[in-house]
Design a protein around this nucleic acid. Structure first.
Lengths: 208, 208, 208, 208
DNA sequence: AATGAATGAGTGTTCATTCAT
DNA sequence: CATGAATGAACACTCATTCAT
C-alpha cells in the first residue's frame, strides 16, 4: 500500500531518470552535470544522491531498462511469421535504430570490458545482454542462410555481420542528425548492406 | 651535430609524446589531464607547454604523422602489380592494422566533425585525409568488382565496405589485446569479411 | 522571517563582500585573488562562486550600491535652501568624503573606460553615474559663479573644478589615515580649495 | 678601458631597459611579462636576471633616470629669465607632460608610501625627489603670487596647486590618447587652470 | 656572458559530493 | 524526504624564477 509520500518519492525518482536519460542522450555522459539533471528534473541536486549513490550508478541504472526493451522488441520481431531473411532485416534495423536513438548508452554498451567476471553486477548484466543479442543474431543469420554451415562458418559469419552492424552505428554515433533523419535517409543502404552480406555469406559458404 | 642539451630536449619531447599517445589511447582525449601526461612522461606539467602550445595542439601533433604514414603505406600497396582484389585486401588489412595500432588516433580520426570548412587547418587536414582514404578505397572496390556499376551503386558499395571496416576496428578498439595478437587471431576473419562483401556486391549489382 | 540558515548564508555573503572590498581597496582588483578573498572571509574559495558568478561580478556588485548612495546624498544636499556656494561646498565635501571612504570603488569609478557604449550594462551604469555627477557639479558651479558665462567657459571651469576634486582624492587614495582623520585634518584646506577656485573662476571669466 | 665584451654587455642591458620602459609605459607593470621584455629586447628572458635581481628591481632602476631628467628640466625652466608666473606655467606644463608620457612611472611615483624611513634606498630616493618637486613648486607659487603670505597660507596654496596638477594627470592617466594628443587638445585648459588658481590664491590671501 | 630547459606556485573556474537542517 | 550551504579536488594554463651548460 503506497502512501502518498511513497508515490511522490517515486515521481521524483522518475523525473530524475527521465531528465538524465534525455541529457545523457543529447550531450553525452561526461558533459552533463548533476546540477543540470536536477534542474531538468525540477529538484535539488542533492536529492539525486538520495536515490542514486553517485553519477555512475545513475548512468548504469539508466541503461538497463532500454536495453531490456531492446531485447524484448528483438524477441517480438523474431517471433513473427515471416521469412527468415525479412525477420533478420527487421531485427537488425530495430537494433540500429535503438543504438542511434541511445547513442550515449551505445558506447556504454559496447565499451564495457567483456568477461570481467569479478566485477559488480551491473556490468555483468550488460555483458549478459550483449551476449544474448549476439546469440540471437547468430541464430537468425543461420536461419537466413538457407543452407547448412559448420559452427565455425557460422561464428565467422555472425562476427562479420556484427562488424557491419557495429560499423553502421559507429559511423553515425557522433552525427548531429536525429535518429529519424538518419533512418529516413539511410534505411535503403542498411537494407542493402544486409542483403549484400547474406548473399556474400551464401556464396562463400557454398564454395567450401 | 646535436648538443647534449638538444638531445635531452628531444628526449623530453618524445617522452611527452609517448606518454600522451598512450594515455589518449587508453582513456580518451577528454579524460586525460596534462598533469597525468606530465607524470607519465616524468616531467613537470608546465614543461609540456614548452613543447606544445596547448592540449589540442599536442593531440594534433600526435595524430598527423601516423596518418600520413598510413596514407603512404596504402598508396604503396595499391600500386603493386597484383590482382585488384588482392590489392584491396592488402590495403584494407593495412588500414585495419594501422587503426588498431593507433587506437586513440582512430577515434580522433573518425570523430572529427566532417565538412566544417570554416574551421582551422588541422581539422581540415584530418578531414582531407579521411576523404582521400574513402576515395582510394572506393576506386579499389570498383576495380575489384570486375563489372560495370553505376555511380550510385558504387557509392552504396563503398559505404557498406566502410561500415564493415569501421565496425571491425570499433569492435576491438577497447580490447586489451595487442595489435599483433588481434591480427594473428583474426586476419582470416577479416579476409573472409572482405571476400564476403565483394561477392555480395557482385551478386547484388548483377541483379539490378 | 529569516531562518537560521538564511541568516548564516547572509553572513557568509557579507563577509565575502567585506573581505573583497578591503582587499580590492588595498591591493587593486587584478592583484587580489579569489583564494585570498576566501581566506579573509573565512570560507572556501569555491563558496564565493555560490554568491557571485565570477570575479568581475563580485567587483560590480561591490561598487554599485555605494555609488547610488553617493548620488542620493549629493541630490539631497543640493536641494537644500542655502546659498549656491554653500551647497556646492557641501556637495563637494560629501563627494570627497565618500571617495576617501570607498577608495577601492574610487579607482574603479574613475578608471572605467568612458563611452564604450557597446559594453554590457554594469560598466554603462557606472559611466552614467559618473556623467550625472559631472553634470550635477557643473550646474552647481555655474550657480555659484554669480555671473553669466558661455557654455565653453562653463565647461572649462567644470573641468578644472573636477581636476582639483579628483586630485584631492587621488592624493590621499593610498594614505593609511582613515577618512575621519583625513577629513578632520584637511577639511579647511578643501574648503579653501573650493573658495580659491570659485574666486579664480570669477576673476578669469570677468576678464574676457 | 672598456673591453669589447663590456661594451656588448652594456648594450644588452640598455636594450632591456629600453624594452621594459616602453612596455611598462604602454601596458602597465603587472601586465607585462619578463618574456615579452626579453623578446622586445632581443635576448633570452634569463639574460634579464643577469642584470636585474628581479622584476621589481628592474622597474625601480627604470624609474630613477626619467625622474632625474624631469628634475633637471624643471630646474632649467625655473632658471629662465621670464616672469614668475610664466616660469610656473612652463614648469607645471612640463610636469604634466612628463607624467602623461610616463604613466606607469607616475603611479609608481605617486603611490610609494611616504616617509617609510626604514625601507631600502630606491623608495627613499623616489620620496626625496617627490619632496624636492613639492618644494620647488612651492617656491615658484610663492614667487608668482606677487604678495607676501604666511607660511601657513603658502602651504595651503601649494597643496591646492598640487591637488590640481595631480588631478589633471590622474584624469588622463588611463586615457588611450597619446601624450601629444592630450597636450595638443588640453594645454589651453591646463593654462587656464593655473591662471585660475593663481588669481584665486591672490584674492583669497588678500582678504585675510 | 648568455641561454634553453625546467619547474613550483598560483590563476579563475567547475564539479561531484557531503553536511546540517 | 528534501534542500541550500559548503567544500576539496581537479582542470587548463601562465609566470617569475632557477639550473645546467
Amino acid at each position: 500500500m503506497a502512501t502518498r509520500q511513497e508515490q511522490r518519492s517515486e515521481e521524483t525518482k522518475n523525473s530524475i531518470l527521465t531528465a538524465a536519460r534525455q541529457l545523457f542522450a543529447n550531450r553525452g555522459y561526461d558533459t552533463v552535470t548533476m546540477r543540470e539533471i536536477a534542474k531538468e528534473a525540477g529538484c535539488s541536486h542533492t536529492t539525486i544522491y538520495i536515490y542514486f549513490k553517485d553519477k555512475e550508478t545513475l548512468l548504469q541504472q539508466l541503461s538497463m531498462p532500454p536495453l531490456q526493451a531492446l531485447m524484448e522488441r528483438m524477441d517480438a520481431l523474431s517471433e513473427q511469421k515471416t521469412a527468415s531473411e525479412e525477420k533478420l532485416e527487421a531485427v537488425s534495423l530495430a537494433f540500429i535504430e535503438f543504438c542511434l536513438a541511445n547513442r550515449s548508452m551505445y558506447s556504454l554498451f559496447v565499451n564495457v570490458k567483456a568477461g570481467r567476471v569479478d566485477e559488480q553486477s551491473p556490468q555483468l548484466e550488460i555483458n549478459k545482454i550483449r551476449n544474448d543479442i549476439f546469440a540471437k543474431l547468430s541464430r537468425m543469420v543461420q536461419a537466413s542462410l538457407l543452407l547448412a554451415v559448420t559452427d565455425e562458418q557460422l561464428l565467422m559469419c555472425t562476427r562479420i555481420y556484427f562488424y557491419t552492424l557495429h560499423g553502421i552505428v559507429a559511423t553515425y554515433e557522433h552525427s548531429e542528425e536525429t535518429v529519424e533523419m538518419l533512418m529516413d535517409r539511410l534505411t535503403p543502404t542498411f537494407r542493402q548492406a544486409i542483403s549484400v552480406l547474406l548473399s556474400g555469406f551464401r556464396e562463400t559458404c557454398k564454395e567450401t
